[in-house]
Design a protein around this nucleic acid. Structure first.
Lengths: 225, 225
DNA sequence: TGGAAGATAGTAATTAATTACTTTCTATCT
DNA sequence: AGATAGAAAGTAATTAATTACTATCTTCCA
């Protein structure tokens, strides 16, 4: 049947995470109420607390969900690449596609980082970003070793800028209210970034990022259950 | 006297803006209460509403304050520069100094953009960023014409990336909780950006951004009353 | 049928805004 | 100048709405 009233707890928890992420795409994450989440799920507000001890616990579940998926995806993307630079590019594309599919996610991360209290969820965001930039830095170092990236490149700064580039695109989407503009603007942004970190000067593209053909892998394979 | 009980309305409004920005540096802008603002000013909560019709009106006053100062500063910085590229650099440095002096500001802008409703304040942020990027794009075009910037540069993407670079640094400061790290990381980030947009390949710096000597102008002149 | 999942109906705390009243400043008129 | 009326600014208390969370009863299904 389509709508069994009673669902197993694990599935309900997963649905809750989904619902929250979906809502975060539409409204300010910090003022999403538990009532709104419940409504989106066709549930009463009190029922949520059968599955989570607190609202913050729901946030933590979201962060865990994000960290798992995002890191898994970028690892996979990096593995299929044939060189550090193409790996960086693949990670960029993958991340962009992730953000387009789940626009609420970056908004929740940003919202969580804004909080002053050192919440568990905030710690999880920190950990996620540390893992993320560590991988980037490793790639950068390897790229420098292979002569593909500028020998004088500041890997740490490059990693920060990488994340900033994506965040800039996200902010643009907040400005225009149109998420899919990200995909159109991403290639241009990455082209500049690429030029900033690569060695030599094979000036104009050759970059593959070109004009909106994602990796077929990315387009199809991840139905994201 | 040090503490006259009754202040003229205009000064009180200005103080309110200051207090809110100061608070935003310490806690999540979206959950700063009117009571907290009042307390910081040594006032009772109700008194605020003698000067503003609503909480949103206070936010609007903040946005106006920011737009005026930020645009004025970057205009001044750009004027003193001798070329488009150095102008871009000067704007970057100026903006960074502004953010370091008022860490609450970017947090409030981000927080406002996150809101789903199209508030007046949000519209003001949009306008500010449009003006900002317009100026950047104009500089980029000029730089291309003069051969200082890459002829194939996508000016719009470059402007987005410019703002994203700054935002990435801000996010880093949210991660570490240390605002002044921004100043240390800024030169590295801009060096990569610069390399990404400039023509030719005078690879390593010569950029002036070097290692934390701000424009003396910036360091001294703006006491920012 | 027994236990997990959900509904219903609360509670206590918080918060923007308002109201009735008091204090302080200031312009005007002798 | 000095008194004073009235406007401007501030206080303290209250209100209505919202929100996370809980206690108790009901339904579903394995």
């Amino acid at each position: 049947m389509a709508h069994p009233k009673h669902l197993p707890a694990e599935q309900r928890r997963n649905d809750t995470v989904r619902a929250l992420i979906a809502l975060a795409a539409e409204q300010n994450p910090t003022d999403i109420t538990t009532a709104a989440v419940a409504k989106r799920m066709g549930l009463t507000q009190g029922a949520l607390f059968r599955h989570f001890p607190s609202k913050d616990a729901i946030l933590e579940a979201v962060m865990e969900w994000v960290a798992e998926r995002l890191l898994a995806r970028i690892d996979k993307a990096a593995q299929t690449a044939s060189s550090p630079l193409t790996a960086v590019e693949a990670i960029f594309l993958t991340h962009i596609e992730f953000v387009i599919k789940h626009p609420g996610v970056p908004r929740m991360l940003i919202g969580e980082l804004q909080r002053s209290e050192n919440t568990v969820a905030k710690g999880m965001v920190r950990t996620l970003l540390r893992c993320y930039t560590e991988r980037l830095i490793r790639l950068m170092e390897e790229g420098k070793k292979q002569g593909q990236l500028d020998a004088d490149l500041d890997s740490s700064a490059a990693a920060t800028l990488f994340v900033g580039t994506i965040q800039g695109l996200v902010m643009q989407s907040l400005l225009t209210g149109n998420v899919s503009h990200i995909r159109r603007q991403a290639p241009g942004a990455f082209a500049i970034y690429r030029r900033g970190i690569a060695s030599g000067q094979l000036s104009t593209q050759e970059s593959g990022v070109g004009h909106d053909h994602r990796h077929p892998v990315e387009r199809k394979k991840w139905s994201d259950r």
